[in-house]
Design a protein around this nucleic acid. Sequence first.
DNA 1: GATATTTTAGAACATTTGTGCTATGATTAA
DNA 2: TTAATCATAGCACAAATGTTCTAAAATATC
Lengths: 209, 209
Amino acid sequence: MKSISERQKIILEFIQDFIEVNDYPPTIRDIQAGCNISSTSVVSYNLDKLKETGYLDRNSEVSRGLKLTKNNSDFSVPLLGTIAAGSPFPLPDNDTWSDVNGQEIIEIPHSMINSPDGVYALKVKGESMIDAFISDGDLVIMEQTSNVRNGQMAAVRIISDDSTTLKHVYSDGEYTKLEPANKQMKAMTFESNNIQILSKVIGVWRYLG
Amino acid sequence: MKSISERQKIILEFIQDFIEVNDYPPTIRDIQAGCNISSTSVVSYNLDKLKETGYLDRNSEVSRGLKLTKNNSDFSVPLLGTIAAGSPFPLPDNDTWSDVNGQEIIEIPHSMINSPDGVYALKVKGESMIDAFISDGDLVIMEQTSNVRNGQMAAVRIISDDSTTLKHVYSDGEYTKLEPANKQMKAMTFESNNIQILSKVIGVWRYLG
DNA sequence: GATATTTTAGAACATTTGTGCTATGATTAA
DNA sequence: TTAATCATAGCACAAATGTTCTAAAATATC
């Protein structure tokens, strides 16, 4: 998965700021001090990771041999948690957004969304979403909104069941039909006040080999 | 005088090119190799000079701690020689322009000229130009052209005398009047075919203390 | 021409800085 | 749980790199 850890995000921002101020990149020890990292080897380790994920070029054995490469054509959205059968469906809240530490970051191309506001990612655990053609390990990109058009896929909570699934949503006001992506399975219709739209699905990403 | 040596100009261009390619500044030894300089101390020496003249910032004891500061609002023109009584008036020629080595470079603000083409500088030796209010040590900025408007100051050669002076030029076609900047002295009129316009004067710079 | 100043050379030195290694804790996979 | 992988720590080492010093050459100054 092409995401970077929080520490790597901090390092990346430090490098950007440092270059902004000094016009030359920081040394490993500059980064160490600037990001409160205990060891130079940890910095080096994470710089290599950032190179692997393509966020920067690293000229080895060259002091300050760093070059930021990532184009700014991606939005960063948080990976808020996992979707698993029996677990509550994670939703962003104020705490989640402000609590940056420990969050993984997912990069979304600009072409996919207009704004990262309310957008987050969830990783699927297990096969509970199999009828939405979403399998174990997939990454679901969601936007927190209750405003979905008919036919769009959304995370829907059936209040009477206290269950949450990903379904295509059709509503005529009084009733809401939930239709699985897998047409082999039958759609179900509920009273609209028994249905809560949690978030709409923007995309599903599957990383293979 | 705020000019830099040819070697310093080469160093400056090397630094610019290096940053262009690598996104980080060169080390002293990079410069040494790139500019064919025999010693690191010479590079360091010239970097200090460039810092004094304001062409770059130098963060001492910091590797690659260079930052180009000079705004690109100046043209570089060559200092071709000196104006001295009895000496021939230096004029640019093809050799002069192509022979970059050993020439001092003068920086001209963009606001002063539209283009550095044909523009050069001369340093005044002695008081031979005193009637143009130009004294020893002044720097005269000239543009090689024979196209001067009436009233402009130019370097004018009086062919019959084989002498060259800086005078305000007024021509009505058949006759050309040469008027000293110092109105106390009298103007002289010559047949136009006895007069050769060498260059027009763009400015006079005097550096004091 | 004699003297002072600037510039270049060369080399040694000290600091900076990237790397390598081992150990430890944290997280994940089976 | 147990093993494996990932991430962090700490330290020592070697290479990279800026500095310093002396001397010579070039240039400017008087």
